[in-house]
Every structure is written in structure tokens, then in C-alpha cells.
Amino acid sequence: MNSLNQSAKDTGITLSSVTFETATDAVLPQAVSGAISNRLVQVPLTVNAQGSYDKLRSFVAKVQDMERVVVPSSLTYPLGTASTGADQATTDSLSMTCNTYSLVDSTSIAGSTGTGSTGTSD
């Protein structure tokens, strides 16, 4: 979450909501699954933001460059959404659905399969 907030600040956009879903085991290709000794989980998240189109695109690029792997699966740019501020300016918006991944110790999540929480702050 800290990385998302910093990316928003750096690009001059406003985050209106960030929603994290329940962590689940990531599905890995067979060739890779034996190379990872810990448990890899994916956490779906949805980000909604406002700003100019160029700033929103810069934000998506910064998210993709974060240290934690974040893979967008859906991006929507509803352009020209009217804001409700005192100046009644027109702004663009972004709705981004993505997955972030984290390696966790199998014993740190209740049970060794299924869903759980990663406890991540990024």
C-alpha cells in the first residue's frame, strides 16, 4: 500500500479506492513450481484513481516498475469524468484490476493450501 501511495504522489494522481481481495495460491508453470521453496500467493487488488490521462498512464507505469511484482489484468480509462469539486473541473479516471505476488513461509498461513492473508504492506 505504501508503494501505491508513493506512486500516486509521484505522478500527481488521486487514489479514490484500493481494494485487496483474499490471497490465494498462485498457479505456476510446472517447470518453475519446483524451483520455489516457499509458498507463492497472489493477492488480487482493484485500484481506482483520478487525474489527467497522461498522469494516470505514468501511474500505471510506476506500478508495473515497483519492487513487488504487480501484474495488471484489466485497465479502464473513462475519460472526461466530471468532478464534484468547487471548480467543477473535468478529470479522467482509471480503474485497474491486477494481481500482486508474495513469497510466504507455508507455516505462516493457516493450513498449507487454500486462502489466507499475506500481511503485506506494499
Rank of each mutant, 00 (worst) to 15 (best):
A31S: 09
A31Q: 11
S33H: 04
S33M: 05
G34K: 13
A35N: 06
A35D: 00
I36F: 13
S37P: 06
N38E: 08
R39P: 02
R39Y: 05
R39I: 04
V41K: 09
V41R: 07
V41N: 05
V43W: 01
P44N: 11
L45E: 15
L45C: 13
T46M: 02
T46E: 12
V47Y: 00
V47F: 10
N48V: 05
N48G: 01
A49N: 13
A49H: 09
A49C: 08
Q50W: 02
S52H: 04
S52P: 10
S52R: 10
S52V: 10
S52Q: 13
Y53V: 04
D54G: 08
D54F: 04
D54N: 12
K55Y: 04
R57M: 12
R57W: 06
S58P: 04
S58D: 15
V60M: 07
V60D: 09
V60Y: 04
V60W: 06
A61Y: 01
K62Y: 03
K62W: 00
V63H: 06
V63T: 11
Q64K: 14
Q64M: 07
Q64I: 03
Q64P: 00
Q64A: 07
D65G: 03
R68F: 06
R68Q: 14
R68N: 09
V69C: 06
V69G: 03
V71S: 10
P72H: 02
P72V: 03
P72A: 00
S73C: 03
S73R: 13
S73E: 14
S74P: 01
S74H: 14
L75E: 15
T76H: 11
Y77D: 01
P78S: 07
P78K: 05
L79H: 08
G80C: 12
T81Q: 15
A82D: 07
A82G: 06
A82H: 06
T84F: 09
T84K: 11
G85D: 15
G85I: 04
A86W: 07
A86L: 14
A86G: 07
A86C: 04
D87T: 07
Q88W: 00
T90Y: 10
T90C: 02
T91D: 03
T91P: 02
S93R: 14
S93N: 10
L94W: 13
S95K: 11
S95M: 02
